[in-house]
Nucleic acid binder design. Structure first.
Length: 421
RNA sequence: GGAGACGUCGCAUAGUUCGGCCUAGUGCACCACCCUGCUAAGGUGGAGAGGGGUUUACACUCCUCCGUGGGUUCAAAUCCCACCGUCUCCGCCA
């Protein structure tokens, strides 16, 4: 939810943002009109309500004929109060509907346009060069007996898989490397629920544009989360928190579920795009004025993870039209995937400013003692998908895979993953 | 799944019988000041959340909030219904 006061004071900020995203600019004017209507309706309704309360007290004290007369008057007034209350409720709902569909205004500098209009901020590391024909991650995974797609499909359908043996160990190692990184940066680890209530799902903004991406359990009216961001944002919903001494940081470890409804036929090979995977997610609650600095922090933590995995990558500033409605800016880090000859997304980190917090009612106390919404940020620290880049980047001619130094201690000192006959 | 008890402004509680004097009282904790020869005690005052109006701001003022959402009524913390949550017992179950 956007800031209604900011909307009133600087509507052009929202018009420009909507335009850069390729969203409706007219929505801004509709919301402004709805806001004015809403406030007028509230004022009228509340004034009449005040009259009714006064009259009610007179009724209680009156006796006899006077009471009967007052009662008749009060009855009529009650009907009118009810009408006006309904008008106010409707006006409020209309404002919520229009203003609620306006996306978080983008931060100055975010490139306008769609998916292809991203700006590359930097490229880091050297792309691997092979003197043999490199194998893709699935072929490597099968040779190492690390990934089993066939049995995954047998048990659960397409886009499901088993991580097996060294594959299972490699994922756990990666997750633990990420967890230690998170701990060293002051994140409190949380193992989160992966089934959440509708209001939490809606509060994080996933029920809008992404609703067909989400698994839903109608018998229980619960949603399976596609990221622990949902639970981490809901963690402090309806609370007043204190980020005055620095960011409140959580690292959420969870399995993630995605329907991949709109991606039929895309990335069908291997574990690049699957229905279920594991992820360590960073989440920060910060003072609004510190949000951009924290955003840079999260990116730097991610970069150190990619560097620890000895991957070649680029950091991109995602274009406005490719941002979720909650994000005011998003940086993705994409790793070089040799057999695809391109970069693929391994992390994503969004600055949601106060947009998400306003919807989930997460506040802090300002110095004057008032409450105000905090800013929230989230970003990936590791996921199952990283194994794609790790396997392909560090492969050798015989199908073995070199283990990045930083991961070795999480694999009992293992330096090389070797094919299983 | 069955039976029962419960849910009040940070915490703890009063109020619900029988609707109006609840503008929700009290204690603890908290903040400011005062007093006090000192990590204590005492005194005075302040202090919940959300939203309107009016303000540069402060202040003032009005409305809403007693788990959530409906309903009855001139009037609901209080009566009715549904839902959510917590606890106890029983049943079932990795």
């Amino acid at each position: 939810m956007i800031d209604p006061q900011l909307l009133r004071e600087t509507p052009d900020l929202f018009r420009d943002s909507q335009a850069a995203r390729g969203d409706s600019v007219e929505l801004v004017d509709a919301a402004l009109a709805a806001d004015a209507a809403r406030r007028a309706a509230i004022t009228e309704s509340e004034q009449l309500r005040a009259t009714q309360k006064t009259l009610g007290k007179e009724v209680a004290q009156a006796t006899g004929d006077a009471k009967a007369a007052l009662l008749a008057e009060a009855q009529q007034l009650a009907a009118r109060v009810k009408e006006l209350a309904q008008v106010a409720t409707d006006a409020e709902a209309e404002f919520t509907r229009t203003a609620g569909s306006i996306a978080n205004p983008i931060i100055a500098g975010v490139p306008a346009g769609g998916e292809e209009n991203f700006v590359t901020l930097r490229e880091v590391g050297t792309r691997p060069v092979f003197d043999f024909e490199p194998r893709d991650h699935l072929e490597l995974g099968e040779k190492l007996r690390a990934i089993d797609m066939t049995r995954g499909a047998k048990v659960s359908g397409s886009r499901f898989y088993f991580l097996r043996g060294i594959g299972a160990r490699l994922e756990i190692a990666l997750m633990n490397l990420a967890l230690d990184k998170a701990l060293s940066e002051g994140f409190e680890p949380l193992i989160t629920p992966t089934l959440v209530r509708p209001e939490i799902m809606a509060g994080t903004g996933f029920l809008g544009e992404h609703s067909d991406e989400i698994y839903y359990l109608p018998a229980d009216d619960l949603y399976l989360t596609g990221t622990s961001e949902v639970a981490l944002a809901g963690f402090h919903s309806d609370e007043i928190v204190d980020p005055s001494d620095g960011p409140i940081r959580y690292a959420g470890w969870s399995t993630c579920y995605r329907r991949e409804a709109g991606s039929g036929g895309k990335d069908t090979r291997g574990i690049l795009r699957v229905h279920q995977f594991n992820k360590l997610e960073m989440f920060s609650y910060v003072l609004p004025e510190n949000a951009e600095a924290e955003h840079e922090n999260l990116v730097s933590f991610q970069e150190s993870m990619l560097q620890a995995c000895e991957l070649s990558y680029r950091v991109i500033d995602v274009a406005a039209g490719d941002l979720g409605s909650s994000a005011a800016r998003k940086f993705d880090i994409e790793a070089w995937v040799p057999t695809q000859g391109t970069y693929r997304e391994l992390t994503s980190t969004s600055n949601c400013t106060t947009y998400q917090a306003r919807r989930l009612d997460i506040r802090y106390r300002t110095e004057s003692g008032k409450t105000a919404p905090v800013a929230t940020l989230n970003g990936t620290l590791a996921t199952t998908r990283w194994m794609v880049a790790i396997l392909e980047t560090h492969q050798q001619a015989d199908g073995s895979v070199r283990v990045p130094k930083a991961l070795q201690k999480y694999l009992g000192g293992l330096e090389l993953l070797e094919p299983v006959q």
